[in-house]
């Protein structure tokens, strides 16, 4: 089953520049795993090591925010359209809060700290 996924500019390095890719899965989590098998590293930018959706990434199923649909457990159907947008957020903020956000930050590049497994190259 084909589900269309719109990729934001900042993540197109994982899709060879493609704005739209297709994937399959019964849930958002399964879809992201499927996409990651062809676009290695993509899932790591959207899902934390603890297995939750990053706080500062917005993912929509058709016109709905997946946070209201069960997040990674959101059920998907053939023909659904997924849109991924990095949250528009920031601010002067305090140190403690900035440090807390640091662990969720979207702009951490996978390649920067950890060796990329061969399968992801």
């Amino acid at each position: 089953m084909a589900i269309e996924v719109r990729i934001p500019t900042i993540l197109r390095s994982y899709t060879g520049g493609a704005k739209v890719v297709e994937g399959a899965g019964d849930t958002l989590g399964e879809l992201l795993t499927d996409l990651d098998s062809r676009h290695g590293g993509l899932k790591g930018r959207l899902v934390t090591e603890a297995g939750a959706l990053h706080r500062f990434v917005n993912v929509y199923v058709n016109d709905e925010d997946v946070r209201f649909l069960g997040a990674l457990d959101a059920k998907l159907n053939d023909g659904d359209s997924i849109t991924i947008l990095p949250a528009v957020a920031g601010g002067a903020f305090g140190f403690a809060a900035a440090a807390a956000i640091g662990s969720h930050k979207l702009s951490t590049v996978v390649e920067s700290g950890h060796p990329v497994p061969d399968v992801a190259r």
Partner: peptide
């Protein structure tokens, strides 16, 4: 352009701004 204000500090990106900047263009 994506804009925001800092209301007590200088107009320079904070660490939070840098971490969360999601539109490279």
């Amino acid at each position: 352009v994506i804009y925001h204000s800092h209301t007590a500090t200088e107009a320079y990106p904070s660490r939070t701004d840098i971490s969360l900047a999601g539109e490279p263009g």
